[in-house]
Each structure stands twice: as structure tokens, then as C-alpha cells.
């Protein structure tokens, strides 16, 4: 992973942590499940990576 991408990933990581903290404050007000969108994003990414791998194997022919 090159330096630029690493920096961007770190910035996004901090950003999502910040969002999580803000959400924590909202939980105090009593209307959120903490971090469920992060869980959804992880499940989603795992699903898509798996789909790409599986389709890559099934549809491996070159056009």
C-alpha cells in the first residue's frame, strides 16, 4: 500500500472514530444503536469481496 493511500485510510479511520464518539453522545439521548453502521459496512465489504472472488472463479473466461 503506497503512502498516499495509507494516509487516506488513517484519516478515514479517525473520521469514523470521531463519528462513533458523536454517536455515543447521541446514545446518551437514547435513540441509537452504537456503531451499527460500522458493522453494516464491514458485513457489506466482506460480502462484496466474497462475491468478487466467487464470480471471478465462476466467470474466469477472458473476453
Amino acid at each position: 500500500m503506497d503512502a498516499c493511500r495509507s494516509k487516506m485510510a488513517i484519516v478515514l479511520g479517525f473520521g469514523s472514530l470521531l463519528m462513533l464518539c458523536l454517536e455515543l453522545i447521541q446514545v446518551g439521548e437514547g435513540y441509537l444503536f452504537l456503531g451499527y453502521n460500522i458493522v453494516l459496512a464491514i458485513i457489506g465489504c466482506i460480502y462484496f469481496i466474497t462475491a468478487i472472488k466467487i464470480f471471478g472463479i465462476i466467470q474466469g473466461g477472458v473476453s
Binding site: A9, L12, S16, M19, E23, N37, I42, C45
Partner: peptide, 9 residues
Amino acid sequence: QLLMVTGIF
């Protein structure tokens, strides 16, 4: 949150 974590992935 959803978009940032996706971006990291």
C-alpha cells in the same frame, strides 16, 4: 460511518 468504513476497505 458507513461510507468512511467502506472507504477504508
